[in-house]
Nucleic acid binder design. Structure first.
Length: 471
DNA sequence: ATGTAC
């Protein structure tokens, strides 16, 4: 029997005061917490953007971010003056998650193999802030990579053609231009290609703890007790610099177009304007950098498994990003329209039968990988109804600021706690570890439960962490 | 997220 509407975990914010559409927040009371006002205000502010259609959405893990909520989804109609806003993409352009599955069951790991695997991963994968990357390349090769993405990485011997079919857009986002990426962005990227970074970025070794949907799990190449590796990282300093540069450059365009927004952090430009086009071309370049970055780290993961367990047959299950604006066609108000869909801390979750999916995944819907907080579960989901422009959550969602988290626990205490739970921890910065304490995050199990209840995505399998490498 | 401020 369907649930009565009043108990559905959905909050509607009616259009008012300059809002072109209403706000729709998919969240239970538990996820909203005691003070949801700030994130509601951001959802309402996004609804004032020129050309926005359908609704200003927030996913179940939403929390306050720069201008847009992290967990925000907003689409504008490109042919009707719709805008693109860097704040709707985020500073870490095309930050995302990659899941790789090893041909190894947990029971087959013996002695100190898990610890040695974590040692090998920590030694092979550059992690932490600042420079250091797996692939040192010339400036002209970096510029090529910004256009070709993971395709170039594979062409240069880092991975296989089969990998590309498991990356969004085949690993290469069209429309990227290197000439709009500034000198500082290029400098920062050149020394960081193939690196994890800091903050909430991590590399985990996990085990498939529970299979919820055996048919989809099998189609994704996942079985109970299987050992897997998850990588969460993005476009490092390059994407950050592209975003910062764009925010500065957009203000004149806004003045010229007479666009006013309720918050300077919502700086934007019509998609169909020189500034809008340049931002999207630079954003695509940073997205290609992020895809190549995760591809290189994926190869290093294979190297580590080969060193310790004698196999590099570690398959790429899927690589998703959760910080981008994409040109997509969707039906809105009965019309097929060309939209610019911002997903910031939100993941594309294509439903079954979507033409963009590779043949073998098409009947099942797009795989979505949702990292939990440290020491807690991560989830594999699949696209379901295509609601909210085919979007779903991206993680547990922060509920306490980094500063608040640091006050509550020292990094070394947390490391001892996690180690006491049997987790292998390889962390570069104690302060960084404390900022990512599990209680700084919402309950990821509740986040994915709500996603499933409202039709954003369905649960496929739950992953339990065995060891973590953190910057 | 981030050479955690230019």
């Amino acid at each position: 029997m369907p649930q009565p509407a009043a108990t559905e975990p959905i909050v509607e914010l009616p259009a008012s005061e300059g809002m072109h559409v209403s706000g729709i927040v998919f969240a239970s009371r538990e996820l909203l917490g005691d003070e949801p006002g700030d994130v509601f205000d951001q959802v309402r502010a996004v609804a004032t953007l020129p050309g926005i259609v359908e609704a200003s959405y927030a996913m179940p893990d939403a929390h306050v971010g720069y201008g847009f909520p992290i967990g925000g989804v907003a689409a504008t109609d490109i042919t009707e003056g719709g805008v693109v806003s860097p704040g709707g993409v985020g500073f870490d352009i095309s930050c995302g998650v990659r899941l790789m599955a090893a041909p190894v069951a947990l029971g087959e790991l013996h002695g100190d193999q898990l610890g040695r695997l974590l040692d090998a991963l920590a030694a092979l994968v550059p992690h932490g802030t600042g420079p250091g990357g797996l692939w040192k390349l010339q400036r002209r090769d970096l510029k090529r990579l910004l256009v070709e993405g993971a395709e170039l990485t594979v062409a240069e011997g880092h991975g296989t053609e089969a990998d590309l079919a498991r990356i969004e857009d085949g690993g290469r986002l069209e429309g990227a231009r290197a000439d709009v990426v500034g000198k500082r962005a290029l400098e920062r990227g050149q020394s960081q290609l193939g690196s994890l970074g800091g903050g909430n970025h991590f590399l985990e070794v996990q085990v498939v703890d529970e299979v919820i949907d055996p048919e989809r799990a099998a189609a994704f190449g996942l079985g109970e007790d299987q050992v897997v590796a998850t990588v969460h990282c993005g476009s490092r300093g390059l994407g950050h610099q592209v975003c910062s540069d764009a925010i500065k450059q957009l203000q004149p365009a806004m003045d010229r177009a007479g666009i006013t927004v309720p918050d300077p952090q919502l700086a934007c430009a019509p998609v169909d304007s020189p500034e809008g086009r340049d931002y999207l071309a630079g954003m695509a370049a940073a997205a290609n950098f992020a895809r190549a970055n995760r591809q290189l780290i994926g190869e290093a993961i294979r190297d580590a498994f080969e060193d310790v367990l004698g196999t590099r047959d570690v398959r790429l299950v899927y690589d998703v990003n959760h910080n981008m604006a994409a040109r997509e066609r969707h039906t809105v108000d009965g019309r097929d329209r060309e939209l610019c869909v911002h997903r910031k801390g939100a993941t594309l979750a294509l439903p079954a039968d979507s033409p963009q999916l590779p043949d073998d995944l098409r009947p099942h819907g797009q795989p979505v990988i949702v990292p939990g907080s440290m020491g807690t579960s991560s989830w594999v989901l699949a696209g379901d109804t295509g609601r909210a422009f085919a979007s779903t959550c991206h993680g547990a969602g922060r509920q306490r600021s980094r500063a608040q988290a640091r006050k509550r626990i020292h990094g070394n205490t947390l490391r001892d706690q996690l180690t006491g739970q049997g987790l292998e921890v390889r962390a570069k910065s104690a302060a960084g570890l404390a900022e990512e304490a599990p209680d700084a995050y919402k309950d990821v199990d509740e986040v994915v439960r709500v996603c499933e209840q409202v039709g954003l995505s369905r649960r496929v399998a739950r992953l339990r962490p065995l060891g973590v490498v953190k910057g």
